[in-house]
Nucleic acid binder design. Structure first.
Length: 496
DNA sequence: ATCGGCTCGCGCAA
DNA sequence: TGCGCGAAGCCGAT
């Protein structure tokens, strides 16, 4: 089949055949929840064109995955509304499905796949998604392909795992230029001369009615679903349209002072794109292209040699280079880890020196030890830490510097490093909109030594793990303003 | 305000 | 085989 998607990004998940007599090509959208800059959708559209079949897009939202809540559901549903809106103006057909009770969606994919010529899905290396795709691959009697839309570097461009950002950065500087001209199409469905699907299979629609996204956009409807209602929606909206707005807000008003401005507590010069990247509402290719365009950059400007230096290689402005180091080096480093190692979320994946040092200090006495419930309730003696925890609970994110302190203190105040890890994973996955992502795990494990080096002097509890203290943090940023913003009494501002 | 020491291990030049 | 250096640190000396 003639496809514009780079072969390195496409995996054949089973040995089942293409069905030439199928009614449509099915794109099972599970991670790249967007209609633009999406290699998976592009691949599915290529199949539809080649086979002369209609294209059906299934986007489902289960209710029984770990940490399912009003917060995560609302964000995904807003994304589905944006996708419905866009697909209505194309020749593809959209099938949004919201599971209303446990296992309610069981059999839907299989039923749709039974009539499909070929099924295409997203390759995402984290959470329950790899297991879900592997299980589907075994069951389906039709070819299932998964497509890697995760980053600028295809996951399979290397079979190594990188233990330090600097090594991965050097590798990227050597390798990325080969992939600069392999961008996904901005609108893979434009000019698609594929037949329209006359109608959805009636028996499938009867058993699994497509979601009425209008009615699900209010909180009342969320209340009917068997999900965690104690984690409330955040004040910013999900979906590709909101993501585009965030991108332009960042480029227009924040990128210029990104390098120094990120720590500013009141006027954070951060991108705020992470939740959208996590749910695939925006593509890192799109973000990269937008930055490059602002910088009037072309690939000829990169330095001729891989220096591994954090700045100066791209030939862009200093703030743009800082941002690209986050977007590309750090983000894709985490994806590489999750893809390479099944134990990316386990304590044993920490570097040997870190495990050894933490173990040597396991028996050290702890002045304060809190339970998960105390951490969750922001009930420690330290008001700066409590404010960070309240930001997480309220807004589904934590200030970029304070989130490191947040993790370091959980290590200090837990019975064992393993307990600390469990608390960090639980709270982050439950409350952070961008949790359950390779980069969540990078951040959490960094607090325990991953991607870091040993530091002296050796201290109680931490051993040689980099130590951070609330007192020095107070000297570095406007802790007063931060604590005031996330004080216990302050009401959540609803901005929509 | 700035600097070195604390400490580990990788990639690279030699 | 040795050298340089690294996501954001801390502390004490100057």
């Amino acid at each position: 089949m003639n496809s514009t998607v780079p072969p390195l990004r496409v995996q054949n998940c089973n040995r089942a055949p293409i069905h030439d007599d199928g009614d449509y090509v099915l794109y099972w959208m599970i991670a790249a929840r967007r209609t633009r800059w999406n290699f998976g959708l592009e691949r599915a559209a290529d199949w539809a064109r080649a086979l002369g079949k209609p294209l059906l897009v299934l986007e489902a939202l289960r209710c029984d995955y770990p940490w399912a809540s009003d917060r995560l559901h609302r964000f995904v549903l807003q994304g589905m509304a944006a996708n419905a809106d866009h697909l209505e103006r194309t020749r593809a057909t959209y099938y949004p499905y919201i599971e209303r009770r446990q296992n309610g969606g069981k059999g839907l994919l299989e039923s749709l796949a039974r009539r499909a010529a070929v099924v295409v899905t997203d390759d995402f290396p984290c959470f329950f998604l790899p297991r879900m795709v592997a299980a589907a691959a075994e069951r389906l009697k039709v070819r299932l392909e998964s497509v890697d839309s995760n980053g600028l570097l295809p996951l399979r461009a290397t079979d190594r795992v990188f233990l330090r950002a600097v090594d991965f950065r050097r590798f990227l500087q050597k390798t990325l230029p080969q992939h600069f001209d392999e961008m996904p199409r901005k609108n893979p469905l434009a000019r698609a001369t594929i037949p329209l699907l006359e109608q959805l299979p009636a028996d499938v629609v009867r058993r699994w009615p497509p979601a009425d996204l209008e009615s699900l956009s209010d909180t009342c409807s969320l209340a009917e679903l068997p999900i965690d209602h104690s984690v409330s929606p955040v004040s910013y909206a999900g979906g590709s349209i909101a993501a585009d707005e965030a991108l332009h807000r960042f480029l227009d008003r924040r990128l210029g002072r990104y390098t120094e401005g990120r720590r500013d507590v009141t006027e954070r010069a951060t991108s705020e794109l992470s939740p959208y990247l996590h749910f695939g509402h925006i593509s890192s290719h799109q973000i990269f292209s937008a930055v490059a365009e602002r910088e009037q950059w072309n690939p000829g400007q990169v330095f001729h040699k891989a220096t591994a230096a954090r700045s100066g290689w791209w030939g862009m402005s200093e703030p743009a280079e800082s941002f690209l180091d986050e977007l590309l080096t750090w983000r894709e480093l985490g994806y590489n880890m999750s893809w390479q190692r099944d134990d990316y979320d386990r304590y044993e994946s920490l570097p040997a020196w870190a495990q050894k040092s933490l173990e040597e200090h396991q028996a050290d006495s702890r002045e304060y030890v809190y339970t998960l419930e105390e951490f969750e309730a922001a009930a420690t003696y330290d008001e700066l830490w409590n404010a960070a925890q309240r930001e997480l609970v309220r807004d589904g994110r934590i200030h970029s510097y304070l989130r490191m302190l947040w993790g370091k203190k959980i290590l200090e105040w837990s019975e064992t490093p393993r307990d600390a890890l469990a608390v960090m994973i639980e709270l982050n996955n439950k409350y952070a909109v961008d949790g359950r992502n390779p980069n969540s795990y990078s951040g959490i494990f960094w607090c325990l030594g991953r991607y870091d080096r040993a530091w002296g002097p050796e201290r109680p509890i931490f051993g040689k793990i980099r130590f951070m203290s609330s007192d020095s943090t107070r000297r570095k940023l406007d802790a007063k303003a931060y604590i005031a913003e996330f004080s216990a009494g302050r009401q959540q501002e609803i901005a929509f």
